[in-house]
Amino acid sequence: MAGFVLIVVAAFFVPGIILRTKSIASGRKGPGLFQPLKDIIVLLKKGSVFSTTTGLIFQIAPAVTLATIICAMLLLPFAEQKAMLPFEGDFVLFAYLLALGKFFTIIAALDTGSSFEGMGASREALFSMLVEPAFFILLATFAMFTGYTSFSVIFNQFFVTGNDYVMIYSIIGVYLFIQIAMVENSRIPVDDPKTHLELTMIHEVMILDYSGFDKALIHIGTYLKFALYGSLIYNLIVPAGWNIFLQAGLFFTVQAFFAIVIGLTESFRARNKMNKNPKFILTLSAIAWIAFTVILILTDKLA
């Protein structure tokens, strides 16, 4: 329960921190910390315009996507508390739930009949397909390392297995989760949410036709997803046994750190050329393979 609430709370300020970091790094005064929240409130007050081409799918897709993200949040543990619905192999459900959300975002984009949105849909489908193996290899590495197959137990056992090399996985895991989060949330270097041309967008172009309430749902989903991945990263860094109040403090520190990393990356790095993206994403899988090989060596399977 605590994990769920903390993710929601973190979602309030993570996108704001990213914005602040970017404006400070570029020397602008920039919007305030809670600008993203204010945006949502404005959107909720507004009416909606629906394209005549669109139908049922376009209307339900944002709600479906948000529902999948909320359900995925129920699978993450916090400190020594288990997740709300832990079971063996819950990370499979985690990945597939997020995929369900993607599915609906993609077909909603195709529902508009716009060629721009079709382009975004095609790109999103391709990139999220390519990132899937990296996530699964990483989780397989953890499953092999700890001998368990549930988020709750894996993270609980992560630091108590007595393995001196735990830092290696921690670092590789954190690195990969940050990169996967960038791909899944459509941020630089794969996608640039602030780009000014529809032709160069991926995620933003898919939601061009949304307005009002539905757009607010999409934004809420995006913010929650950031905090969701931040929480995954947190679980890899901080041992589950520590004092719970200390943990709560550390949780927000890690989330803030995650947001600052994203902000800095976006300030100092250009987006990849579109046709370089597959290579970039497949590299993540390759890094995950390396982590897996390392663990084979450490567990004396590979002499």
Binding site: G47, F50, S51
Partner: peptide, 10 residues
């Protein structure tokens, strides 16, 4: 809220 219909944004 005010709900309107319009063409797809081109």
């Amino acid at each position: 809220r005010l709900v309107e219909k319009g063409p797809t944004w081109g």
